[in-house]
Amino acid sequence: MLLTRLLKPSLVAYAHCDLPCGVYDPDQARVEAESVYKTLEKYHASTDEHFKARAIQVKEERAELAKHHIDVLWSDYFKPEHVQKYPEITDLCWKAAKQCSKVKQSLDINEAKTLLDLIDKIGDVWTKAGGPTATRMAKQMARA
């Protein structure tokens, strides 16, 4: 015990990575984009003006959240090594963020579909880059 106390380091040096938690998943953006899509479906199916006004507001909030999650992936998760290996990621993140703005402006459900497709392509790169094991915690296995 005493020996351990004597040997214990007096300094900590950080061989670290800045990531506050290191958990990243394009599904976070996808859930918001799905919300946008479904909200637009409901918007077009409704004749209630009050409901439609609320739907527009929700759609715009969700699109902004999707944009935020894409931005976090782009600025915090993807590193120069990833870009070197998967150069398409730059363009994908850029297009997806812009698509979020388009979705905010538009009531066209096809724009929401395009956003989902772009997020899925980002998700493919994230998977190829080892994201699922590098950034997510495994779910606890169900006990037998």
Partner: peptide
């Protein structure tokens, strides 16, 4: 100086918790 390693950016040479 005795130094504790925190973080994993120096793997495999140095691991989190190594004492140097």
């Amino acid at each position: 100086r005795r130094v504790a390693v925190a973080g994993s950016s120096m793997e495999p040479a140095l691991r989190d918790g190594d004492w140097l």
